[in-house]
């Protein structure tokens, strides 16, 4: 009898003790991924650098990027070459290029990260619902996705901004409207295959609710895909914002790299040889977009190793 009591009492107690909190393996893998993939590591370092710049922008560049600067002589400090006072020189209207570059990081990251978050969220939910429930829900959602996919990218963004006004949040909205179908479609197809796995059926047999099957049994398995699409969306959103600003449809109150390029272009900076005006923002755009690509590539290889050659 003593033995029985021990079996019944002690084991559950030990069990309870062992049920300590720990990171789920998916999170562990997400966190350790950069250490295993050098490309992803580089991408994350680039992001961290830009993130730091954005956070400390006001301290890194004390000049207001939109302020028109004057020389001690009272003349506008236009087209100054790079030097001690203005690290990257000034624009043809006497604005500090370095300050614009630093503050442009803020808007680039704000656009990129918010677009990525919303694209991943919308794409994941739509993909899960369409794939799991199937039938007319699936047909409806996927036809809407097809329509969104058939929109031409930049013209759509320009038209949307034409209607809603030149605001950074409208650029994010446009990017989300255009990018969610990609992630939704891929996630849907993954859900279609996961839905047929025995353990999903097992969850049904044991009485799990639809929501529990969808979000506890299926969703964690497609999360890596959401990350991949989020990382891709960062780059797309920043490029789109830059393109729109370059074409002159950007938010006039918002300093961004695209706006800098547009300014430089419109004032013929190249003919004056003001390379310090347009090369740095161009390089920054490339770096952020490439970093996003590297990170998505890293996640892809960690979570879908079969793709690796």
């Amino acid at each position: 009898m003593a033995e029985r009591a021990e079996e019944r009492g002690v084991i559950p107690a030990q069990l309870a003790a062992r049920r300590s909190w720990r990171l789920p393996p998916i999170v562990q893998r997400l966190l350790t991924m950069p250490l295993r993939d050098p490309f992803a590591f580089v991408g994350i370092v680039i992001y961290l650098l830009f993130l730091l710049v954005a956070v400390f922008a006001d301290r890194l560049a004390t000049t207001d990027p939109t302020e028109i600067l004057f020389l001690s002589t009272g003349k506008v400090a236009a087209n100054m070459p790079p030097g001690a006072e203005y690290p990257l020189g000034t624009t043809n209207l006497g604005r500090d290029i370095y300050a614009q570059l630093v503050h442009g990081t803020e808007s680039a990251l704000a656009v990129g990260l918010s677009a990525a978050l919303i694209v991943a969220l919308v794409g994941t939910v739509v993909g899960l619902v369409a794939g799991y429930f199937g039938g007319w829900i699936d047909a409806l959602l996927m036809r809407i996705a097809d329509m969104a996919l058939s929109l031409p990218f930049l013209p759509f963004v320009i038209v949307l901004i034409g209607f809603l006004g030149p605001d950074t949040s409208n650029v994010v909205l446009a990017v989300v409207l255009l990018l969610w179908p990609n992630s939704a479609r891929v996630i849907r197809s993954q859900v279609l295959s996961l839905r047929e796995r025995s353990y999903v059926e097992a969850a049904r047999v044991t009485g799990a609710s639809q929501a529990r099957i969808l979000f506890v049994h299926i969703a964690p398995n497609i999360l890596p895909l959401s990350f991949v699409y989020a990382a891709i969306a960062i780059g797309w959103a920043i490029i789109t914002e830059a393109s729109v600003s370059f074409l002159g449809f950007g938010d006039p109150d918002n300093v961004s790299w695209g706006m800098m390029l547009q300014d430089a272009f419109a004032s013929q900076a190249l003919s004056r040889g003001q390379y310090a005006w347009f090369v740095p923002p161009g390089v920054c755009i490339i770096l952020v977009v490439v970093a996003g690509f590297f990170i998505s590539r890293g996640y892809e290889e960690v979570f879908m190793p079969r793709l690796r050659r």
Partner: peptide, 30 residues
């Protein structure tokens, strides 16, 4: 009241669930 034992045990358990969680799942659902 009605349960199923699967043909392929390698596919019948959620790969992201520990054994304890897998066996406790029906209790949670009930």
């Amino acid at each position: 009241q009605a349960q199923l034992v699967f043909q392929n045990p390698f596919d019948a358990l959620n790969p992201r669930f520990t054994i304890y969680r897998a066996v406790a799942e029906p209790l949670l659902n009930a």
